[in-house]
């Protein structure tokens, strides 16, 4: 049985492509390792420092909770308002981008292009720019989260809208509906559940984002992270982490339950 079959067997496909891919990945990793000055030896030699950092965090400063309730609520407020404004602005953006609603390519393509541009800018960077314009506080944070939310909600929803059932749309066209009626009866009933689900998802993302905007002065709990880490007050940092964890887990849980009910 150790002889190959007499019949002509196909030649194995060349593996050059696989080797080449592997080589490219390895080279990229090596270059990245050098460029970033990474050293896992450092990580090992500094393990005591990391351990002591963690030990310093305990016990958490429980009394500090009282002081961070207000900024924590502020964080939630920013997320609520930013998500809401983002959702409102998203509606026209979705209608412009979805190519089964807006059949004019020279409008839908530029609209998508702008949407993609917005999505490339990280939220912290948006916040830093708005802080420069409006000064410190919640307002620049809300602006940043609003724009950030449009990027997520509009993108996810318009893609869902493009996948909806064509039947009702054709039916509405057939009964002679105008554009507004057409959108109200053919698009909105089908897209609403997706839209609400994505808004809730974005709210979850925004809670996490709002928690760090304070690092650049845009309100919320982030400012407290910055100052406590600056003053090396690790028990307080731990309190902040616990509080953030609790809020995020609760909001994720509630939002997930609501989303499950929707879809």
């Amino acid at each position: 049985m150790s002889q190959p079959p007499k019949k002509t067997i196909p030649k194995p496909p060349t593996r050059i492509k696989h080797y080449l891919t592997a080589a490219i990945v390895l080279v990229l990793l090596a270059l990245s390792y050098i460029q970033t000055g990474s050293s896992f030896m450092d990580l090992i030699t500094n393990r005591d420092q990391m351990a002591s950092l963690v030990i310093d965090m305990f016990p958490p400063d429980w009394a500090y909770f009282e002081k961070i309730i207000e900024p924590m609520l502020e964080t939630i407020r920013m997320a609520v308002i930013g998500t809401t404004f983002g959702a409102i602005i998203s509606v026209p953006v979705i209608l412009l981008c979805a190519n089964n609603v807006n059949r004019i390519p020279w409008i839908s393509y530029p609209a998508r292009f702008i949407l993609n541009l917005i999505r490339t800018v990280p939220e912290l960077l948006l916040a830093a720019i708005f802080v420069a314009i409006f000064g410190l506080g919640m307002i620049p944070g809300i602006f940043a989260l609003t724009i950030f939310s449009v990027g997520i909600i509009a993108k996810l929803t318009y893609e869902s809208v493009e996948g909806i059932d064509k039947g009702p749309m054709e039916a509405m066209t057939a009964v002679g509906a105008n554009k507004v009626q057409w959108i109200t009866f053919a698009i909105i009933p089908q897209a609403a559940a997706y839209f609400v689900s994505y808004v809730l998802y974005t709210f979850e993302v925004n809670i996490r984002a709002a928690a760090i905007l304070g690092l650049v002065g845009a309100g919320g709990i982030g400012l407290y992270y910055d100052s406590n880490l600056g003053f090396l007050n690790y028990p307080r940092v731990n309190t902040l982490i616990i509080a953030t964890l609790a809020v995020v887990l609760i909001i994720d849980f509630v939002s997930n339950k609501l989303r499950e009910k929707l879809l």
């Binding site: 990474s38 050293s39 990391m50 950092l53």
Partner: peptide
Amino acid sequence: IKAVGPGSF
């Protein structure tokens, strides 16, 4: 940063 110092790593 506290552990390995500031920088890309």
